[in-house]
Design a protein around this nucleic acid. Structure first.
Lengths: 151, 151
DNA sequence: TTTTATACTTGCAAATTGCAAGTGCAAATA
DNA sequence: TATTTGCACTTGCAATTTGCAAGTATAAAA
């Protein structure tokens, strides 16, 4: 698992301690903007992440509290869901999306682009609300599974 | 020099094509928030970048049009200044700063933190204006040097 | 029990980072 | 003019990370 070392007291540096690589934020993106949640989902993204890198980054994100793993129906299937910590990254991801879009790289549907231009904060809030609800459901589910396994 | 390859049409991925490493955005940070502009300035930051990595990243940032190099008085001395392209990264840097600060990593003076909380957009605009003015001065200067060398 | 789907794990080569010594260039000084 | 000093890189090499692709473990269905 990618080792996290705090390089300085600078908040930007701190952010890059976790996310200063080509892949970690792409996983957050896939969850936030592409509704992906399984290992296979992330593997199928256009950037073609390698399985060992994906595993490594998911482990880091989970260990640092940005995502949580939960069972999904299907053989050996699992999903990954943002925690509150992970949800706080949405604004960074959106800011990058706006930056890239300003360079005429905009693979997202036109409506999202228009919404972001119209009211960026509103979009961020809506996404945060959506994933907060999902996180609560998943957390409850995990807690219930935990109780069951104790019987 | 770090090779830039466009991995997909996603704007976030596009941003990470340039900045998905531990160092490139730290250079932008140093220019924007620490008023640094020479090789030696960047070398002295708390994160201790290696000279070969710094050179590599400065070359990339220059080649991609985010910064421009200009002469500074002193022996073999040069400075680096944001271009309009580079200035457009300020909002990403600031969003990361806010994220890091929300995790209680805040090595900046309290006033900046307060200003950002009060009116993030205003701070971003002020910084953009400041560096736009500097870029214009530098560009004019470079153009004049260019004219001189043709005589 | 066997097959299938999923999530990883592993071995290895290529690429990148980090350390620290070295080199080249420009300006100041003797 | 020659030498010294300051600055911006460059270089050699070891350590680490990434990427490729085959392999393995687990869970559920047949």
């Amino acid at each position: 698992m990618k080792e996290i070392r705090k390089r300085s007291e600078c908040p930007i540096s701190y952010c890059l301690d976790f996310f200063g690589d080509k892949w970690a934020l792409l996983i957050i993106r896939d969850i936030v903007l592409n509704d992906k949640y399984t290992f296979g989902d992330f593997l199928s993204s256009d950037e073609s992440i390698a399985t060992n890198i994906l595993t490594d980054r998911l482990k880091m994100l989970e260990a640092e509290g940005f995502i949580v793993k939960y069972p999904v129906p299907g053989k050996a299937r699992v999903g990954y869901c943002l925690t509150e910590e992970g949800i706080s990254l949405i604004s960074v991801v959106i800011e990058m999306a706006l930056w890239g879009a300003s360079k005429n790289v905009n693979g997202y549907r036109k409506e999202l682009g228009a919404e972001l231009k119209k009211d960026k904060s509103k979009v961020i809030k809506q996404l945060a609300t959506k994933f907060t609800k999902k996180y609560r459901r998943v957390k409850n589910n995990l807690e219930q599974l935990d109780e069951k396994s104790k019987k």
